[in-house]
Design a binder for these strands. Structure first.
Length: 882
RNA sequence: GCCCGGAUGGCGGAAUUGGUAGACGCGUUGGUCUCAAACACCAAUGACUGAAAGGUUGUGCCGGUUCGAUCCCGGCUCCGGGUACCA
C-alpha cells in the first residue's frame, strides 16, 4: 500500500473535529501549559507559505507538551479590525464586515488543511461585539483610573478626587478644587486619567485620513501603504503608557525573550538617568529648565539651546526673544517647519539656529552664556531645552563651530563618582534634582476611521463622559460610505443617531489596531464569559502564556501595549500575573525565491541560464509554481501566458535552467507559494516537516522547494516500514538508535531546534534500515506525531490502537541503551598524524596512554622522537605531543 | 553615528560551545532496475594533488592565546536587524 496522504489527511482532520480531540478545559489534576500564536490579520490575499512557519513550530510544541502530560491551551483567532479591509471598502463599497468574514473563512480552511491542534471552540474575532465589549470595558476602566506614584500602581480616579476634596494634592487646595466648575475639573483630571483626551502633536497621515501611533510610522512614512506622515496638533484620545515605563523596563528581566528583542524594547522605553536643572535668566524672574545625563560637564557649558516650538508666538519661552531678534527668529521658525518635513524624507541634517538675544547664568561659574534656538533640540523630549557642552557632545560641538562659540574641555571620560558628587551639590544648592527621563510616549488611541472599536464616550458641553458599563458593547453602526465626511470628520459622523439614549453625541473616532490584540490572550482562557473579560477560575488556572510565537515586527507595538494592558489589569486585580508572555520566540520571515527566464533580444528565444553569457538577453520573472529545482516546465510555461504560447527554448543538457534571486514574497514577482498547492502535491505532513527542516526557526530564509523531496521520501520510508510489522525482539543496536533519537528529539523540541530534529529522524531511519519491529516503531510513531500528525495517527490506528496517538505517552529516554563497551579515541600526534583507536571506555588514563603509545601507527610516527606528554580527554581524544 | 546579530562545500544548513569540521537534506557524478524515460534503490562527492594508499590545504580577512580554535582574545571587511539630532 502506498503512502496516500491525500486520503489520510482529510480523514484524520475530520475525525479530530468529530471527536473534539483538541478541546481543552480547566483540569486541576494536570499541569497547564499555554502555547499562543500571534493571531493573523485575515487579508484578502490568503495565507502564503511564510505564515504557517511559526504556527507549525507552536503546533509541534503543543502536541509534544500534551504527550508529556500537560493540559495544553492552544487557541487561535483573528485580528479582524484594520485598515486594509476599510481601504478596500472605500474602493469597492463592500462592507468590511463582509470581506473580513470571507477572508476569515478562507484562512480557516487553509489552516485546517495543515492539521493544527487548535481548540477552535475558543476562537475569538476582535470585530465581534461580544469580544470588543471587553476592549471597550478596559478602556473605560483606564478612563476611570490614574497612576498613583506612591503606591506605584493604577488606582480609581475617585480616590484622587477624594484627595483633592481633602486638599491632599500639591498645588490644588481643597478650596481651589471646590471652586472649580465641572469643565475645569474634567480638564484637570484629564492630566491624570490613564485613558485621556489631550491636544497633542500627532502623526497625521493625509492619504489614510487618520492619525498613527509612533510604531505605525517608519522613516516618516506610514507602515501600511507607505504614505507620507506629518506632525499636526489635534485633540486625541491617548493611553498613559508612559506611567508604566519603569515597570515595563524592569519586567523585561523576568522574561525568557531573546536578548535582541529585550534590547529593542529597552531602547524604545529609552530610560536615561540624570539631572533636572534650573538656570537663571539675565534680566528675568523666570528660570530655564533643562535635563542632562552629564551634570559633571557643567563647567564646560558655553551656551543654551531651546527647541523651536518653545519660541513660537504662544510658546513657553517667547518672552526670551528680544525685539531686535524677533524677525530673524520667526523666519527661522518658519524655515524649520518647512524643512523638517522634507528632511524626514531625505534624512540629511545640517547645523542651523538663531540667537534669542537673551542670556542665562551658569550656576557653577556665574558666567553669562547666550541662549540659542535650534531644531536639533526636540520639544517632545526632556524639557525641550539643553545646556550645551560642545567639548563633550558632537551635536553641541558642530553647533559651536558653526556659530563660533567657545569650546571648553572639562572632564575625561564618564566618571559616575564625579556625577554623583555634582548631583549632591546641585540638590544642596536647590538648583536642580536627580531625574529619570523616558523616551516612551503615551499611545495615541483614536483613529479617524470606521472599521474599529467605537470609543465608548459621549460629550456634554464638550466634556467627555464614559458610557455606563451596562451599555457595553457600544456596537459599530452600519454605514454605506466609509470615507471621511466633507468636513474631514470620521465616517461615524455620518451616522444619523450616533448619540446616547439622552441624545448626547458619541465619540466618532474608533480605536487603533493594537486595541483588540492587547488582551486577546486572556479572552482565550474564558472566551464565552458574558460577565467578565476572563473569569477568576480560568485566569488562576491558565495564568499566563508559557510560550508565545510570532514575528519580531511587533516588538515596539503590540508587545509593549499588551504588557501595559496586562499590568493595568493586574493593578485592577483582574489578572494574577504581571507579565503576559513568559517565553517568546520570534520566527524568521520567509522570503520569496524568484525565478527568471532569459529572452534573447535578437531572436526572441528563451536561453537557459548557463548559456546567457553568449547572448544579449532580457530577464523576465517566471511563476515559481511552474519551476521545479530551477528547471522550467516548458509546456507549463507555454500555457502560462498567451504571449509565450509559441516560445522556443535554447536548452542545456536537455533542460531549461532558470536563474533565481531572493526577493520579498509578492504577487508581482510571481514568487508567492501557496501552501494549498504544496499540501496537494506532497501533503501537510511533508510541508510541516519541510518548513522546519529549512533552517533555524528564528532565522529569515527564502522559500525554496528544492529539498522538499527529501522530506517526503523520509515519510514514505517511514510508512513502508509498517507494511509487515513484526513482534520480534529488537537488537541492542536498534534499541541504541531508538534511544539516541528519543534523547535528541526531546532535547531539540525543548530548544526549538526543530531543523536538527527533522534531521535526527532521517538519521534514525538510515540506521534502522529495514527494521519493522513493533517495539521500535511504536515509540518512534509517538515521537514523530508532533511533526507529522496525520501519518502517525494513521499508522497508530493500524497498529490496533483505539485512541488517538496524542493520548499516548512520550517515550522516555533510557541511557542504559547507549552504554558501549568500546569507544573510538581519535588520536592526534602533535597535530600531524591522526588515527583512530578503539579502547575500552572504562579504563583509566594511564592505561589509555600505554595502549596508544603501543599502537603500531603511533610507534611508527614516534620513532626517534620522544613524546613530551600525552593529553587525554576521557572519552574524547588522545593527543601526543612531541 | 550608536546598539544588537551574523559570515562554514555547488545550495539550505550541522558541530555535544576548546577535542576527528562539513551531520541531515538538496544538487551533481557513477551504478542497479528498465526496450527507454520517470520513480526507487546503492555508491561517491570541500578544494588541490595522486593510479591508489596517502599528502597538502580548508569555517569572511589579519594577528594572538593553546598540545589543539568554527568556538576564546585583539584589529579589520562585508551582510542583516533595531534606533536615531533622546541632551
Amino acid at each position: 500500500m502506498d503512502y496516500n496522504f491525500s486520503e489520510i489527511e482529510p480523514k484524520w482532520q475530520a475525525e479530530w473535529q468529530r471527536q473534539g480531540t483538541y478541546k481543552v478545559e480547566v483540569n486541576h489534576s494536570k499541569p497547564k501549559y499555554y502555547v499562543l500564536d500571534m493571531f493573523p490579520y485575515p487579508s484578502g490575499a490568503g495565507l502564503h507559505v511564510g505564515h504557517p512557519l511559526g504556527y507549525i513550530a507552536s503546533d509541534i510544541y503543543t502536541r509534544y507538551k500534551r504527550l508529556t502530560g500537560f493540559n495544553v491551551l492552544h487557541p487561535m483567532g483573528f485580528d479582524a479590525f484594520g485598515l486594509p479591509a476599510e481601504q478596500y471598502a472605500i474602493q469597492t463599497g463592500q462592507h468590511p464586515a463582509k470581506t473580513t468574514e470571507e477572508n476569515i473563512r478562507r484562512y480557516r480552511e487553509q489552516l485546517d488543511k495543515l492539521g493544527f491542534s487548535y481548540d477552535w471552540s475558543r476562537c475569538v474575532e476582535t470585530c465581534d461585539p461580544r469580544y470588543y465589549k471587553w476592549t471597550q470595558w478596559a478602556f473605560l476602566k483606564m478612563f476611570e483610573s490614574y497612576y498613583d506614584i506612591e503606591k506605584d500602581q493604577a488606582r480609581p480616579i475617585s480616590e484622587l478626587v477624594a484627595r483633592l476634596e481633602r486638599g491632599e494634592v500639591a498645588g490644588v487646595s481643597a478650596e481651589k478644587w471646590a471652586a472649580m466648575n465641572e469643565w475645569q475639573r474634567s480638564d484637570y483630571l484629564m492630566n491624570y486619567r490613564l485613558a485621556y483626551r489631550a491636544d497633542t502633536m500627532v502623526n497625521w497621515c493625509e492619504a489614510l485620513g487618520t492619525v498613527l501611533a509612533n510604531d505605525e510610522v517608519k522613516d516618516g512614512l506610514s507602515e501600511r501603504g507607505g504614505h507620507p506622515v506629518e506632525q499636526k496638533r489635534m485633540k486625541q484620545w491617548l493611553l498613559r503608557v508612559s506611567a508604566y515605563a519603569e515597570r515595563l523596563l524592569a519586567g523585561l528581566d523576568t522574561l525568557q525573550w531573546s536578548e535582541s528583542l529585550k534590547e529593542i524594547q529597552r531602547n524604545w522605553i529609552g530610560k536615561s538617568v540624570g539631572a533636572q536643572m534650573f538656570f537663571d535668566i539675565v534680566g528675568s524672574q523666570r528660570k530655564l529648565e533643562i535635563f542632562t545625563t552629564r551634570p559633571d560637564t557643567i563647567y564646560g557649558v558655553t551656551f543654551m539651546v531651546l527647541a523651536p516650538e518653545q519660541c513660537e508666538p504662544h510658546g513657553h519661552f517667547r518672552s526670551l526673544c528680544t525685539p531686535d531678534n524677533v524677525a530673524a527668529i520667526d523666519k527661522y521658525l518658519a524655515d524649520t517647519k518647512k524643512r523638517s518635513e522634507r528632511e524626514r524624507m531625505t534624512e540629511t541634517r545640517r547645523v542651523s539656529g538663531v540667537f534669542t538675544g537673551s542670556h542665562a547664568v551658569n550656576p557653577f561659574t556665574g558666567e553669562q552664556i547666550p541662549i540659542y534656538i535650534s531644531d536639533y533640540v526636540l520639544a517632545g523630549y526632556g524639557t525641550g531645552a539643553i545646556m550645551a557642552v560642545p567639548a563633550h557632545d558632537d551635536r553641541d560641538k558642530a553647533f559651536a563651530e558653526h556659530f563660533n562659540l567657545p569650546i571648553i574641555s572639562v572632564v575625561e571620560g564618564k566618571d559616575q563618582a564625579a556625577i554623583d558628587g555634582i548631583l549632591s551639590e546641585i540638590e544642596q544648592r536647590g538648583i536642580g534634582s536627580r531625574k529619570v527621563n523616558y523616551r516612551l510616549r503615551d499611545a495615541i488611541f483614536s483613529r479617524q476611521r470606521y472599521w474599529g472599536e467605537p470609543i465608548p464616550v459621549y460629550y456634554k458641553d464638550d466634556i467627555a463622559y464614559p458610557l455606563p458599563l451596562e451599555e457595553l458593547p457600544l456596537e459599530l453602526p452600519a454605514v454605506d460610505d466609509f470615507s471621511p465626511t466633507r468636513t474631514g470628520e470620521p465616517p461615524l459622523a455620518r451616522v444619523k443617531n450616533w448619540q446616547t439614549k439622552d441624545g448626547y453625541p458619541l465619540e466618532t473616532s474608533t480605536m487603533p489596531g493594537f486595541a483588540g490584540s492587547s488582551a486577546y490572550y486572556l479572552r482565550y482562557m474564558d472566551p464565552h464569559n458574558d460577565h467578565a473579560l476572563v473569569g477568576k477560575e480560568a485566569d488562576e488556572y491558565w495564568r499566563d502564556v508559557d510560550l508565545y510565537i510570532g514575528g519580531i515586527e511587533h516588538a515596539t507595538g503590540h508587545l509593549i501595549y499588551s504588557r501595559f494592558w496586562d499590568k493595568f489589569l493586574f493593578d485592577l486585580g483582574v489578572v494574577v500575573d504581571q507579565e503576559p508572555f513568559k517565553k517568546l520566540v520570534n520566527q524568521g520571515m520567509i522570503q520569496g525565491r524568484s525565478n527568471f527566464v532569459y529572452r534573447d533580444k535578437a531572436s526572441g528565444r528563451f536561453i537557459s541560464y548557463g548559456l546567457i553569457k553568449d547572448y544579449d538577453t532580457q530577464e523576465i520573472h517566471v511563476d515559481v509554481n511552474i519551476v521545479k529545482n530551477d528547471i522550467l516546465d516548458t509546456e507549463a510555461f507555454r500555457a502560462w501566458r498567451p504571449e509565450f504560447a509559441n516560445a522556443e527554448f535554447v536548452l542545456e543538457s536537455g533542460k531549461y535552467i532558470c536563474g533565481w534571486a531572493v526577493e520579498k514574497m509578492s504577487k508581482s514577482m510571481y514568487n508567492v507559494v501557496n501552501p494549498d498547492q504544496i499540501v496537494a502535491d506532497y501533503g501537510a505532513d511533508t510541508l510541516r516537516m519541510y518548513e522546519m527542516f529549512l533552517g533555524p526557526l528564528e532565522q529569515s530564509k527564502p522559500w525554496d522547494t528544492n529539498g522538499i523531496d527529501g522530506v517526503h521520501k523520509f515519510l514514505r520510508r517511514f510508512w513502508n516500514l509498517f507494511e509487515n510489522i513484526t513482534e520480534e525482539t529488537p537488537t541492542p543496536a536498534e534499541l541504541k538508535t531508538l534511544h539516541k533519537t528519543i534523547k535528541k528529539i526531546r532535547e531539540d523540541i525543548e530548544n526549538f531546534s526543530l531543523n536538527t530534529s527533522v534531521a535526527a529522524f532521517m538519521i534514525c531511519l538510515n540506521e534502522l534500515g529495514q527494521c519493522n519491529k513493533r517495539a521500535i516503531l511504536e515509540p518512534l510513531t509517538i515521537l514523530l506525531a508532533p511533526f507529522a500528525p496525520h501519518i502517525t495517527e494513521e499508522v497508530w490506528s493500524r497498529m490496533g490502537h483505539a485512541t488517538t496517538v496524542f493520548d499516548a505517552e512520550m517515550p522516555e529516554f533510557n541511557p542504559d541503551y547507549l552504554v558501549e563497551d568500546n569507544f573510538d579515541y581519535p588520536v592526534s600526534v602533535n597535530g600531524k598524524l591522526r588515527f583512530k583507536k578503539t579502547l575500552p571506555l572504562a579504563i583509566d588514563a594511564t592505561e589509555i596512554e600505554k595502549a596508544v603509545l603501543a599502537d603500531e601507527n603511533a610507534q611508527k610516527w614516534l620513532e626517534g622522537r620522544a613524546p613530551k606528554k600525552v593529553i587525554i580527554v576521557p572519552g574524547k581524544i588522545v593527543n601526543i605531543v612531541i
